[in-house]
């Protein structure tokens, strides 16, 4: 079982949820995926299009009121075991939008978060660091 867990931990598929982000963090996520310098595929990661395939969920954005129900539904569609990473300060604390009537931040009131990657936006290396941290947590959950 231990061997299977160890092998499984080398194939974490990433899924992005944009919870009302300004797209700054999404651009950085795309950067980690697409630019040869930050090649996230080395860790066995792959961005997948469907929440059903996801292992590590990357959430950006302050969870706006409009998108809240959709994000919660989407989160429920992701099969266990899963690890959640909050990318950028918006999901972690609300960031510059904290206290606005239009956002429900911080996101950990609604979704259990495992790793936080602060930054506005975080640099790609920081995101890689957060993903590596998430993989360690995921290994224990398998």
């Amino acid at each position: 079982m231990n061997l299977i867990s160890r092998i499984s931990a080398r194939s974490p598929w990433l899924y992005r949820i944009n919870a009302g982000s300004c797209n700054g963090c999404d651009v950085e996520l795309a950067t980690t995926a697409c630019i040869p310098r930050y090649d996230v595929e080395r860790l066995g990661c792959k961005y997948c299009g469907s929440p059903r395939h996801a292992d590590i969920v990357l959430i950006t954005g302050p969870l706006t009121v409009r998108v809240k129900d959709k994000v919660l539904r989407l989160y429920g569609e992701i099969p266990d075991p899963k690890v959640t990473v909050a990318v950028g300060i918006c999901p972690i604390s609300g960031g510059v939008f904290r206290g606005s009537y239009a956002v429900c931040a911080p996101i950990d009131q609604y979704i259990p978060i495992d790793v936080n990657v602060p930054g506005c936006p975080p640099r790609p290396q920081a995101i890689l660091e957060g993903v590596a941290m998430a993989i360690e947590i995921w290994k224990e959950r398998l």
Binding site: V96, D114, V117, C120, I137
Partner: peptide
């Protein structure tokens, strides 16, 4: 909650607040 914009360091009259180049900020919940 910090955007790392550097306004605080810019407006500080005595350099009592500065920004370093340490970006290892990812942390568990």
């Amino acid at each position: 909650s910090c955007t790392f914009c550097g306004l605080c360091a810019f407006y500080c009259p005595t350099e009592g607040i500065t920004l370093t180049d340490d970006w290892h900020l990812a942390h568990p919940q």
